[in-house]
Structures are given as C-alpha cells and as structure tokens.
Design a protein around this nucleic acid. Structure first.
Lengths: 347, 347
DNA sequence: AGTTAGCACTCGTAAGTTATGAGTGCTAAC
DNA sequence: GTTAGCACTCATAACTTACGAGTGCTAACT
C-alpha cells in the first residue's frame, strides 16, 4: 500500500481522474487511448493539450506506456495495480444472478467435485474468461468409517468415509472368499482398529489384537485404505472455458495462445499458478506478477472457499490484463460467499 | 468397395502409382504437389509432361483437385478414401511401443475411467493429434448389491454395485437417525427387495412386504439408487491433446481452430461424432464423411474395445485430412487389442 | 500411339511503395 | 496554468510490381 501511496502522492486529483478514464476506456475498447478521445468522451473539462501534459507525467510515473511513438497510451502493470487497489468500484450483479448461482449450485450439492466443476462452468459462462477450480488436499484426512461389502467370489469393495465426509471406494481381489458374514466381521474389526486414524498413523498401526487368521486379508485391505487416503490427499483441478482465450486480442498470435492453452492442460502448472493465492477474499495478480512466463499478458483473479477456518479450494479466472476487474471480483465474491455458505450448511 | 473398384477400373497401374505418390507427398509436406516434383522425387520414370496428363485424368476421376489454377494437386476426399481402402500399408510400430502401451495401461488397471483417460493421453502423445475416449453406457445395468453405512447423525452412505462390477456411492441426509444396526437391517432389506433389478423395474417396484415404519426411508434410498443407476447409464467422454489441432496448418485460421476446439469441449457433439463408429476394428471418416460441419477439414479414426461381444467404449483420433493414416490405424489396432485383452482378463 | 520438350499463360504470394491518419511533443499566445 | 497550432512519427492499409511454381497445349520425337 505504501508503494501505491508513494505513487499517488505525486498525483493530484486530476491525474487520478485521467488515469481512471484511460484504464476504463482501454478495458472497454482494447486500443491505446489518446488525449483527444479522453477530452471528448469523458467529462474532464480539459483540452487535449492539457491532458497530453498530464499523460506525459503519468508515463513518467510508470503508470501508462506508449506501445509506439505515435499511438495513444495503455495502462502498465503498475497502472492496473493502482486501479484495482484504489480506484475500482464494485459491479452490482443484481439479484437475478444471485438466484441463478444458488439454483445452479444447489443441483450439484451432493458431490463436491461435481459442484466445483459446475461452478467453474458457471463462472466461465458468465465472464467469458478461462476458469480454473482447484480442491486443496486435506492436511491429514482421518478415517471416520470403513465398510467391507462382498461383491462376488473373491472380490470385495472397501468403502472409506473420511472426517470431512468424503467417500471413496475401491474393488479388492482377495485370496480367500468373503461372504456376507465375514464382510461384517471384517467391517467391525476394521472400524475398531483404525477409526480416527490418519494416513501417517495408519502406515505404522499395530494389528497385534487381530485374529492371525484374518491378518493377511486385513493387511491387504489396510493397504488399499492407505491408498484411498493418499488419493484424498491430492488436489484436483478443473478448467473450463479455456477456448475463451482465443478471443483475447492479446492472443492474436497463435503461438502465444497455444502456449497458454497447453499450460492450462497441465495440472502442475495450474497448481503453481494458484499457489500464491492463499490469502483471504479476492486476490489479483497482474501481468508480470504472475508466476508463469506465458501469463505475462494475463491477469489472474482468485478466491477461496472454506469450511470454518479450513480452506477447501480455490477458484481462479484468467483473462487479459485489460479484463473487467470490477465485474469479475464481484462475481467471485458472490461465488465464494455462496459456496462457503452451502458447504458450511452441509458438513 | 464396388464404388471404389469402379474408380479403379478406369485407372491403370501407373495412375495408381501417381495417385499414391501424390497422397504420400501431400501428407508429408502439406503443400500441393506438382508434376515436376513427382517426376524428380519419386521413381516413376516419367517426364513431368506425361505425369501432367495423368494428373488431368485423375482430376477428371475426382480423386485429386487443384486449390487454384496455378497450383499443384491435392487429394480429394474420394482420393483419400481410395488410398485408405486399397493402397495404404501398415506401419510397424515395433516391440518397444508395444511394451510401452502395456506398461502404461497396467498402472491404471483398477479404475476403468482412469485407464481410459491414460489411454487417451498416451494416444495423443504418440500421434500429436487430438484424442477422444468414450465409455458407452450399459444397456440395462442391474443392481448386484447394495450397502447402507452410517456416517454421522442423520447422514448415511448408500453404495451400489452393478452387474458389470462398477461401484458408485452417494451421501444421503435422512430424516431419522440411522445407527449401525439399522444400517444392517436396511442393507439386508434392500438386498432382498431389489437385487437383480434393472433401472426400469426399480422405478415401479413393489414394496408391500416392507415394514411400514421404514418405508419412507427405503423409498428415499431407492430414489438415490435409481439416480445412481441412471448415472451409470450415461456415457463418459475424455479428450486429450486438443491443442494439437492448433498445429494443423489447415487451422491457421484462428476462427476455424476455435470452432473445433469448442466442439471438442461439448460432450453431446463428441457423442454424435463417435456414434457412427460402432463397427468392428478400425473405422475411418474422411472430411465430408464426418457428421459435423466443423470437421469437414479433418479425418476421424476410431476403434472400439470390448469385453466379450459387448462394446465398452470408443477411442477416436482427430487429425487433418492429410494425417498419417497408416501410423494411426496401426496404433489404434494395438491399443484396441491390448485394452480388450486386459479388460477381458480383469472382469 | 505414347512420350516428351517447349512455351505461353495463370495466379497466389511476397516485397516494395505510397497514402492516410491517429497521436504526440513543443512552442507561443491567451 | 491552459490551450491552439503545427511539425513530426509511425503503424496500418491499399496499391503495385515481380516472381515463380505449376498448368495446359502444341508440336516433335520414338
């Protein structure tokens, strides 16, 4: 903030107004904006010559740049930063949108993955930008309940419910036949032995109390449970609306578009990209501020959703630097609010 | 076949050789091939003038066309068709690739969805074309076993195993509390009542024998089971390597590329696209033969994998019409062979 | 009769040229 | 401090020209 204020201290009210007009116009039109346009289109009560002088100052301050000598000005990363930190207002999305969000999310309530996927689709549709949704791994998932059920000769299903109420299952091929009774016995043995355990404690758990007859089978099952917990412990990522980036005029160059599209297919890159945005509420990363080279022409706006104090995941929107910050921030705030609310109710 | 033979009857051996050279050269270079190139680069023992005459004939037969008056010739859809049906040889992929396929697939054996996803990734990587993998719905999945397990106060998990050994589960919020005993009672009641039932029979099943006390709860659970079966009954689709299409020179035009990329994000379109390829072994659809407008400049090569006589899914590769048919067909044959083999062993 | 050399013609592409105009910085007057 | 005026810059678009890959046709050759 002090850095920005330092910038602002050298600026009078008029400079701020001009900068804001430049950014708004550039976001809207996408072409460099000149002094004459500003003087005519915006109610600044100044001649183009005066505006030109002010623009020269703004350029000296590093807030705007000229793509080439005889063009208008476009905002620099620093200019955008000042804008989103100090000037930008909120967009009122209206109650209709609010209802739409609630309605669409309600449909998918029973499956958190499907819910996130739907959210990403919804956000991409509403913004026409690319959207990423990420679930964060639980720090230490613990076993809440286990259930063994027989399927057919020498084949059982092991179902695990973890403390955050996620359910996973796996088919196991056993060496001995498991009938209904044995399944029930195994189920209660397992629940007694490992309920409440974490992934790490499970790895070195003590099975001395277990009837040696079932020990190999139990061991096999526990191995699967460990695998299930480990899976639980990885994050998941969805992307939606990635083709929208082909519409950004910044990506007229096919090569650049391709680079970014490919990046959006690679989970590790996405994780890296989202890793910075752990903070509260809405986070904005502009141009060079982004962790990845191919994102230099883009801005990333992220938010998180939580249950209580625990952050469950991140939603991010990738757009050109000249994206509609106000609208996207408002939308993400709404989405985050509703998601957090709904998840809080459910679990 | 008769249509193609009709075409071939008007062609002598030399015309065939020239056509083959044209197609091979065009697949390799991507630019229209002229008579002089053919005469010099290929061992035809003919002057360019003679080749020009033959080419004029081939054009009359509709097998090649000129993009414009002073350019060389490119194969028409009909030309490609004749090529893939009669001229094209197999590419030997070598034992290394074979081993690679087996190795990569083995890793993912326990989850059919992950297996397919991996396959798609593998194919996309090896061909540099876009790849689609689709699982087909079961005609009539039936309930093999149901299990109810308590999770916490007024929350249970319902696990369903279907006759094809797929397992799905869902969390249910109940109006009354379900403890371990009740869960067991419900489980055996349900298994007695609906084991072996299909989606349709489940929808109008008779619950007169059920203790009226549990009837609302049982009804609620059956509703969820119906939902699970219905989900089972939908197909799933993955796409991988879609950004490869940006490399096809046919899609230098950003607009066209975008159209196709968007199509590849829409499940219904993909289903439609793959619907034709139900036949045996490997299926090729060239240009206009495809079901969708945006695919007019592409070829689609598909294969299926099965368990016994039952087709489980389809794998398709989308490339430009001038794609390397021979390599892709050979690869898909291998993939299909291995997938079918492995699934046969497992289930 | 089939093959080939020769040649005029076509037409897309690339390179070079020019014109246009949006926008600037500077200066001098208000 | 503000503004009109003006010379200057430079990207873009439109037009021209040159080039060359490739064709079809004709006439000569085997």
């Amino acid at each position: 903030m002090s850095a920005n204020n330092e910038g602002r201290d050298n600026m009078n009210e008029r400079k701020v107004r001009i900068l804001e007009a430049i950014i708004q116009d550039y976001i809207q039109t996408g072409s460099p904006v000149g002094s004459r346009t500003l003087s005519k289109k915006y109610d600044l009560q100044l001649s183009s010559a005066t505006i030109r002088n002010e623009m020269a100052d703004l350029e000296d301050l590093g807030l705007i740049t000229q793509p080439h000598a005889s063009a208008g000005r476009i905002p620099s990363d620093k200019g955008y930063r000042l804008y989103v930190d100090n000037l930008m207002g909120k967009t009122d999305l209206g109650p209709d949108l609010d209802n739409l969000i609630v309605k669409m999310l309600n449909d998918k309530m029973n499956d958190i993955d499907a819910l996130l996927e739907e959210t990403a689709r919804l956000v991409a549709m509403m913004t026409n930008y690319a959207t990423i949704a990420q679930t964060l791994p639980l720090a230490e998932p613990t076993v809440k309940r286990v259930q063994i059920m027989p399927v057919e000769f020498k084949s059982i299903v092991c179902v695990v419910v973890t403390d955050n109420n996620l359910v996973k299952h796996n088919v196991i091929t056993t060496s001995l036949e498991v009938d209904e009774n044995l399944a029930n016995v195994l189920t209660s043995m397992l629940n007694k032995a490992i309920k409440g355990m974490t992934l790490t404690s499970l790895k070195r758990c003590n099975l001395d109390d277990i009837d040696p007859m079932y020990k190999p089978l139990i061991l096999q099952i526990i191995k699967v449970i460990i695998q299930i917990l480990a899976e639980e412990n990885t994050n998941q990522i969805f992307t939606r609306g990635t083709t929208n980036i082909l519409d950004f005029q910044e990506f007229n160059d096919m090569q650049k578009a391709r680079e970014l599209l490919e990046l959006l297919e690679e989970k590790p890159y996405l994780t890296k990209l989202l890793s910075k945005s752990s903070g509260n509420s809405v986070n904005i990363s502009i141009g060079e501020e982004n962790a990845l080279e191919s994102m230099k022409e883009c801005s990333l706006i992220t938010t998180t959703y939580k249950v209580g104090e625990y952050t469950l995941g991140t939603i991010g929107i990738i757009g050109p630097k000249r994206m509609n910050y106000s609208q996207v921030v408002s939308l993400l705030e709404q989405i985050s609010y509703h998601l957090t609310l709904m998840l809080g109710n459910e679990f």
